[in-house]
């Protein structure tokens, strides 16, 4: 494993989803922070300086894609890559990620995809980057 304890912040309003993400990603050797609310995220990013943020979309009061756009609009937090991580349709996720110029999206429920994509977004190219990137951003 090449990651030097890379730090991932997972934001989700559902405790079960947070638990699953934390446990699965910890297994991969990452340091995982979880936050069960869409609020206080910019402050948390500044304080914890994560290498990657996994952002749920359907959350109380503030949808994750809007929150991601908000984080990217703030110059103190704009450089951290944000990936939408949701149970929504893949197409709607890819469109939302493209619209807000986010790093990408990961569909919940596919453990292999989670591992591969997180590794990719952190820059650990597990496969040929160009073809993988094309798959990641595929919007038919």
């Amino acid at each position: 494993m090449t990651h030097q304890r890379r730090k991932i912040l997972v934001i989700d309003d559902n405790a079960d989803h947070l638990y699953v993400a934390r446990e699965l990603l910890s297994q991969e050797g990452y340091e995982v922070l979880t936050h069960q609310s869409p609020f206080g995220v910019t402050g948390l990013i500044q304080a914890a300086e994560p290498d990657l943020v996994l952002m749920d979309v359907n959350m109380p009061t503030l949808p994750g894609d809007d929150l991601a756009a908000f984080v990217r609009a703030d110059e103190r937090t704009r450089d951290v890559p944000i990936v939408l991580y949701s149970s929504n349709d893949e197409r709607s996720l890819s469109l939302a990620a493209a619209r807000h110029r986010l790093a990408g999206y990961i569909c919940k429920g596919d453990v292999t995809e989670l591992r591969m994509k997180v590794s990719f977004f952190l820059g650990d190219h597990v496969t040929d980057g160009s073809t993988f990137r094309r798959r990641l951003y595929a919007i038919e």
């Binding site: 079960d16 989803h17 699953v20 699965l24 149970s87 929504n88 349709d89 429920g109 596919d110 453990v111």
Partner: peptide
């Protein structure tokens, strides 16, 4: 339909993740 899809998938996805964690 978008709501139904999300509401059905969300617990399924938790179940898949938890099953994998149980296996581990």
């Amino acid at each position: 339909m978008a709501h139904v899809t999300h509401e059905l998938r969300s617990p399924v996805n938790v179940i898949i993740g938890l099953s994998e964690l149980t296996r581990i």
